[in-house]
Structures are given as structure tokens and as C-alpha cells.
Design a protein around this nucleic acid. Structure first.
Lengths: 198, 198
DNA sequence: CTCGGTTGTCTAGCAGTGCTAGGATCGAGT
DNA sequence: ACTCGATCCTAGCACTGCTAGACAACCGAG
């Protein structure tokens, strides 16, 4: 059965190539430039090959999103583990998140702006997405404050970060306020173990 | 010159019809259903007529966005003017904003998600957008806190609302936490005149 | 070693998109 | 009554996501 195994491996490799190429193309020229024709040309196969791996373009976006979620989770954990104390962890988390969004706009869009056909906040939510949320909650849960559900606080903090990330990138917020905005957020929203956040 | 005047009036009417129809169609079936062909059919003209009013589809989205901005500003002002005290005004503002986003998803997307070719946070930003931001700042500026620029605080609060609005609607947050999330936000982020917000 | 059948891939095409060139038609002013 | 300019439509371009059907390559059986 080594033949079958080899074929499966090659198939998996090609699937990875498709996702990597889509991501690269999206990052270079934006998602609107990621067409099935261009994508097929870059991987040196014809368009129908794409459809033997994915149901359609939407699923390709979803695959990029999952990859991005894993990376975001890793980036957040790396940043928070190097910080001392709850407040420092929150600050590190916020900066790592916004940094990721700024450095990987196409991947970020695949995750949170475009429709990748993925389920969110449900049982059938893919593991990488759940884990990315878990990575946020690990550091944010401890500053939720008394009587505040960690998941609830994490959702709110995440929403704020998401708003900052998207509005900043589309030029809807003043660029010079970028840093003070983050400081304001990490100063006000969390509540540390002493019962206050300021 | 009454003839010319009549023609101009009719042109303006038709332009309004285009925008209203685009908005209606987007609200009914989503922006992806708003094609130039369908739009032309609904207004009972051929497609090229659209291009005698707007440069392209993007400008039509922009026109809907401007209309929405005016309505959002009015909704926010109406809600805040009926509230007593800074904190109550902030709460009313947040709820009015999120309510508007939930009730007019297509218009909200035209304003803050899609590309309508509009300039934000600049001198050449269209008046309705500036005014909508001003409407937010009228109530949010007074709870910015000592040493915090009102514009900066408004941007941060707006970003949080925007994150909540978009992530909630796309099913990325738990629906049952919708209300506590807002309460958390209006409890923590503002700082009233007594120097604290809790 | 040859053959049959499966598996894989490509060419060609469909319906739909935003947008535009060119010609027809209509109406206002002389 | 007639010209001429504004107004509008038909037809078409290049592109999109996606798919049917023909074709080739390769595997396992005899």
C-alpha cells in the first residue's frame, strides 16, 4: 500500500501548496486578486484541480483562516508567556494581536472579515479557532474582575481589539492615535486582582 | 429655464431612486445581490444610466453609506438627548449604535466594512461622516477622563462598538452574552467627572 | 507483458459580473 | 418644420466562480 500512501502524501502536499499560494497572493495583492484562474496558474495546474481539494473559493479562504488562527494563537502565547504579571500579559497580548493583524492583513481578513464557511462560537467550531480564543482567555480571564465570566470578558476585549485592527487598517481612525488607543484599552477594560484596573 | 430645472430635478430624483433601491436590495438580499443589472432592472432603466450618476458600483455604496451616516448620527443624538447624566448618555449611545447596526446591516456594512471610496478621518472626509463622529463625541467626550483627548476616547469607544457590532452579526460571539458585553463596556471604558468609572 | 478499468487532469464552456463604445431616439430651441 | 444636442439603450468586452465531458496515465489482475 505504499503507492496509495505516496499518492495521499502528494495530494496533501498539493493542498498545502494551494493554501500557501492563495495566502501569498492575497497578502501581495489582496483577496480580490485571488481568482481561481490566477491561483491555478501559480500552482501550475488547471482550475478544476482546485475543486478536487476544496468545494469552492470560500473553503480555500477557510483553510487560510485556520492556518492563521493557529499562528495567532502561537503569537499571543509567545508574547504573554514572556510577560510578568496579569497587566503586563494583557498589554503584551493586545500588542501581539494588533501586530499580527497589521502584519498579516489578508490572513486576518480570512479569519474575521470574509466568509470562510467556518462555524464560530459553537460545538462544531474547528479546533484552531477554539484554541485561538482559548489563548486569549488564558491571559484575559484573570483580569475579568469579580463576578465577570472570563469568556464574556474575553469576548469584549477581543471585540475591542478587532474594532481597532479593522478600523485602523481601513484608514478610519487617526494613525497618530494608534498607540494611545491601545494604552487606553489596556488601562480601562481589565480589572486586576486588587479589584481595580487603574 | 424651467425646463432645465425640471430636468435637473428629475435627475436628482432618479439618483435618489438608485440609492434607495440599492439600499433596499442590499438590505433584502445582501450586497452581493446588488448587481448593476438587477439594480438597473429595478429602477426600470438600462445599466449605463447608473454610470451617468455614479462612477461605478463603489460610488453607489458610498452614497448609501453617507445616507446611513446621517441616520446614525440622528439616532445617536435622539437617544442621548433623552438620557440624564453622562453615564446614562453613554449607555444610551452604545445601545442606539448597536441597535442601528443590527437593524440596518447592509447600510452599516456600506459605511464601515465595504469600500465606498470615502475618505475617513481627514479634511476631505464628507460632512455626514464627520457629523456622525461628532455625534458620538458629544456624549463620549465628557467621560474621556482627565488628560485623555475626547477624540481619542471616542475613537476607542467607537472601535469597541464596531467590533461588537460586526462580530456579533457574523456569529462570532455568543448571542446570549450580547447584553452583558455592552454593560461591561459602558461600565469600564468611560470615566465620569468624579474621576472614576465604577 | 498485456490488457481493462480506475483515477486523475485538462479543455472548453456556462451563466453571471462590472463597465463601456456606438448608434438610435427623442425633444427643445430656432 | 427642422436641426442638433442631450439622453438612453443595445450589444459587447474581459473577467469571475464553477462544471461537464473528453482524454491520458497509471495501477493491479491475468
Amino acid at each position: 500500500m505504499t503507492v496509495k500512501e505516496r499518492k495521499e502524501r502528494e495530494r496533501a502536499e498539493r493542498e498545502g501548496l494551494i493554501v500557501a499560494t492563495a495566502r501569498e497572493l492575497a497578502e501581495q495583492q489582496g483577496w480580490e486578486a485571488v481568482t481561481t484562474r490566477r491561483l491555478a496558474e501559480r500552482i501550475e495546474y488547471s482550475q478544476p484541480v482546485l475543486y478536487s481539494h476544496f468545494r469552492g473559493k470560500r473553503e480555500i479562504i477557510g483553510a487560510v483562516a485556520l492556518q492563521g488562527a493557529a499562528e495567532l494563537a502561537a503569537a499571543v502565547r509567545a508574547a504573554t508567556s514572556a510577560a510578568d504579571g496579569p497587566r503586563a500579559r494583557v498589554a503584551a497580548l493586545a500588542r501581539a494581536y494588533l501586530d499580527f493583524a497589521a502584519r498579516n492583513p489578508a490572513v486576518y481578513d480570512a479569519m474575521f472579515l470574509l466568509d470562510g464557511g467556518l462555524a464560530f462560537a459553537q460545538e462544531d467550531t474547528p479546533a484552531p479557532l477554539k484554541d485561538a480564543f482559548a489563548a486569549l482567555m488564558e491571559s484575559l480571564g484573570e483580569v475579568a474582575g469579580d463576578g465577570i465570566d472570563p469568556g464574556l470578558f474575553t469576548e469584549m476585549f477581543w471585540a475591542s481589539l478587532h474594532g481597532l485592527a479593522t478600523l485602523t487598517r481601513t484608514g478610519r481612525l487617526l494613525p497618530e492615535y494608534a498607540e494611545p488607543r491601545v494604552e487606553l484599552l489596556i488601562d480601562r477594560l481589565p480589572m486586576d486582582s486588587r479589584g481595580q484596573g487603574r
